[in-house]
Design a protein around this nucleic acid. Structure first.
Length: 502
DNA sequence: AAAAAAC
């Protein structure tokens, strides 16, 4: 496939204004209401293309302004083309946005609502975990734009609360994530209910082979827009990893949080139980913390997110439900209580910090048995992460086996944190009862020699073998953004081998 | 091995 990459220089973007796109005055008003004048690079690239009615395959992470890049032109197009439907009251849904998680759906819906506030267009969000009734009333009342998670949408469809026969535009947000989560069959079912003639926009963090297949099935002659990964791993984020014994991770994370004056910290755990336990542990230590994960009720999830955003709590302990998409931005610090099994997720997680020009710290604790994960991560981000040492702690290497050098025999090295340039995290040691240095060795018989290889995850979905509708070919437009601000010289390839290759 | 998502 011959591509003609168009490179957009980062500093060229601000010269364009939203006002240059020919958007309706109502939309521009909503934008100026919120102080938006200049589009981000992906917006500058995508908006004109979407306005042309073309399908788009966009690779962009959260924080790049992705949501506006599809919502603004959608609103514009819906405004411009009067509803051709004979009975607008019965089948008014004309644009459908699908997202993998409920929180992301809510967030996208909030944006759409804000952008469309001065227009007559109605929008709503439907997702699981909540009572069907309220959603049903709104759907039946008629809305032009629906933002939904797939499962609940299908539920509404089955109950005939909504009909999608008039949908002109479909957006699949975080498509890669939807695949990961096994939403393919649901997507297929939903798409089969849509008119054949429609505009499709698909966004994904990467262009994996699976995503390309999905694009081939669902998109027609798509323009390809690729934006550099967020600068998460660039200079602005100080990354440090601390190697500690497994049982010590909890205390080390607490130590790190305290060392940061309890400023808003997002902590990631690989498991729901781990997230709950850690949050409870922190609370017991007097830290205002809450957990967010899939076993919490939707009310709890929303309350937790809300409280964190408002600053009512200082620490949010999350599973990967919060790794992507969520607009928890500009955090000063993200901590990985566990290294993610999926190296990609590391990038997503730490992308919560150091955004929009701010600097940030991404700290991770790991133990022997996770060495392999760290290797994968460093390979992906193409850099070696600083090994940090903690003042007052001895990070035992507890080499597999028994690693008997605990506090008793082990040499103590109460080091001032020195490496880790700019590691403000070293801060002061907590003044709690623990007093001086502690040794987190393998005294409890850590990691008993288990170090098998980590199986690679590979999911093959047979459904892929039957393309929904063969896509026609033509020269796709490829747009690349050079790493914003930092070093204009280094191109995308450097930013996270997310596989820009073909 | 884990997470997410419909009831």
């Amino acid at each position: 496939m011959p591509e003609t990459p168009i490179t957009i220089e980062a500093d060229s973007a601000p010269t364009v204004k939203f006002a240059d796109f020919g958007l309706a005055p109502e939309i521009l008003r909503a934008l100026t209401d919120q102080g938006y004048i200049h589009p981000t690079p992906i917006q500058a690239a995508a908006i004109p293309i979407v306005l042309q009615g073309r399908d788009v395959m966009g690779a962009a992470q959260t924080g790049t302004g992705k949501t506006a890049s599809f919502s603004l032109p959608i609103i514009q197009l819906l405004l411009a083309h009067a509803n051709p439907s004979m009975s607008p009251a019965r089948h008014p849904v004309r644009a459908l946005v699908l997202t993998p998680t409920r929180e992301l759906a809510v967030q996208v819906a909030e944006n759409v609502k804000a952008y469309a506030q001065h227009t007559p267009l109605r929008s709503t969000v439907v997702f699981g975990g909540m009572d069907m009734k309220g959603q049903t009333v709104i759907l039946k009342g008629g809305v032009e734009i629906v933002i939904a998670t797939p499962g609940r949408l299908l539920d509404h469809i089955e109950q005939k609360n909504v009909s999608l026969g008039q949908v002109q535009m479909l957006v699949m947000d975080e498509a890669d994530r939807m695949l990961d989560m096994g939403f393919l069959p649901d997507l297929q079912r939903i798409i089969n209910l849509l008119p054949k003639k429609r505009q499709n926009l698909m966004f994904s963090a990467t262009f994996s082979p699976e995503i390309k297949k999905l694009a081939n099935s669902f998109l027609t002659d798509p323009a390809t827009i690729e934006v550099a990964r967020s600068n998460a791993t660039a200079d602005k984020v100080t990354q440090i990893v601390y190697k500690v014994a497994d049982e010590a991770k909890r205390d080390v994370v607490e130590f790190l949080i305290r060392g940061r004056d309890l400023k808003q910290v997002l902590v990631f755990s690989n498991t729901k139980i781990g997230a709950s336990r850690l949050s409870r542990h922190l609370e017991q230590g007097g830290i205002k913390a809450t957990a967010i994960h899939g076993d919490k009720t939707q009310q709890e999830r929303m309350a937790a997110l809300d409280a964190f955003k408002k600053g009512e709590i200082d620490v949010l302990v999350a599973t990967d439900v919060a790794a992507r998409g969520l607009d928890i931005s500009d955090l000063p610090c993200v901590i990985n209580f566990d290294l993610p099994y999926n190296a990609e997720d590391y990038v997503h997680r730490i992308g919560r910090t150091g955004r929009a020009g701010a600097s940030g710290d991404a700290l991770s604790v790991f133990s022997d048995k996770d060495e392999r994960l760290l290797v994968d991560i460093e390979k992906l981000i193409k850099q070696t992460i600083t090994r940090g040492e903690l003042a007052g702690f001895v990070a035992s290497s507890g080499s597999s086996g028994s690693g008997a050098r605990g506090e008793a025999g082990g040499e103590r090295r109460p080091r001032r944190d020195e490496g880790a340039g700019g590691a403000r995290s070293s801060g002061r040691a907590p003044e709690r009862e623990r007093g001086g240095e502690r040794s987190f060795g393998a005294e409890r018989g850590a990691a008993s020699g288990r170090s098998g290889p980590y199986p690679r995850r590979e999911k093959v979905d047979p459904w892929f073998l039957t393309p929904y509708e063969p896509a026609k070919k033509s020269a796709p437009v490829a747009v690349e953004q050079v790493g914003a601000s930092a070093k204009p010289k280094q191109k995308i390839a450097v930013l996270l081998g997310g596989s820009p290759k073909q």
